[in-house]
């Protein structure tokens, strides 16, 4: 892992509670910790002038959705994000999906779920339950966008959509 990524990762707070979405007693506490870590990560990103995603969940914290942005050649590309929290979370990591890119790249499973590097799963497993959704974003989606989006743009598979002004 490069030094910048290490620094980014180490500045995301670690989570304490090991609980999945079916744990009625401890899931609310885990969910609070997820939000705390995400809030800190987004604040860090804004301070570093790299505000690249937003996320929110349903009330139960089982379904998450949001947007991410990637700047390439001075243009800002926006993509929808969605994922569910698996029943075996946090032992099983979340599978982040970009549904708009489904079928457009080989680096994706059906439904737009991003394929992660071979490093991700063992790294996640070693850090259960300390890693959470914020860490999955930093270790998973961030690097995936950095590799895949420029390639998809260069190939013309992803094209810039100008936001309409009202």
């Amino acid at each position: 892992m490069d030094e910048t990524s290490k620094k980014t990762l180490s500045s995301i707070p670690l989570l304490k509670t090991k609980a999945g979405p079916r744990d009625k007693d401890l899931w609310p506490q885990r969910l609070k910790e997820e939000y705390q870590a995400l809030i800190q990560y987004v604040q860090n990103n804004k301070a570093a002038d790299n505000d690249w995603f937003r996320l929110e969940s349903n009330k139960e914290g089982t379904r998450w959705f949001g947007k991410c942005w990637f700047i390439h050649n001075l243009l800002k590309y926006e993509f929808d994000i969605e994922f569910d929290v698996p029943v075996t979370y946090p032992a099983t990591a979340v599978e982040i999906a970009l549904p708009e890119l489904d079928g457009k790249t080989a680096k994706m499973y059906r439904g737009g779920k991003i394929c992660l590097s071979d490093h991700f799963k063992p790294l996640w497993a070693r850090n259960v339950p300390k890693f959470g959704i914020a860490h999955a974003m930093a270790l998973g989606l961030g690097p995936w966008l950095a590799v895949e989006i420029p390639d998809l743009i260069e190939k013309g598979i992803v094209t810039y959509k100008e936001k309409s002004t009202q």
Binding site: P13, L14, K16, I39, E56
Partner: peptide
């Protein structure tokens, strides 16, 4: 993460308003 007095609703709202 530090112990917090904030409720889950408050944290959700904070995330929305960042």
């Amino acid at each position: 993460v530090e112990d917090t007095q904030a409720s889950l609703d408050e944290l959700m709202a904070q995330m929305k308003n960042i």
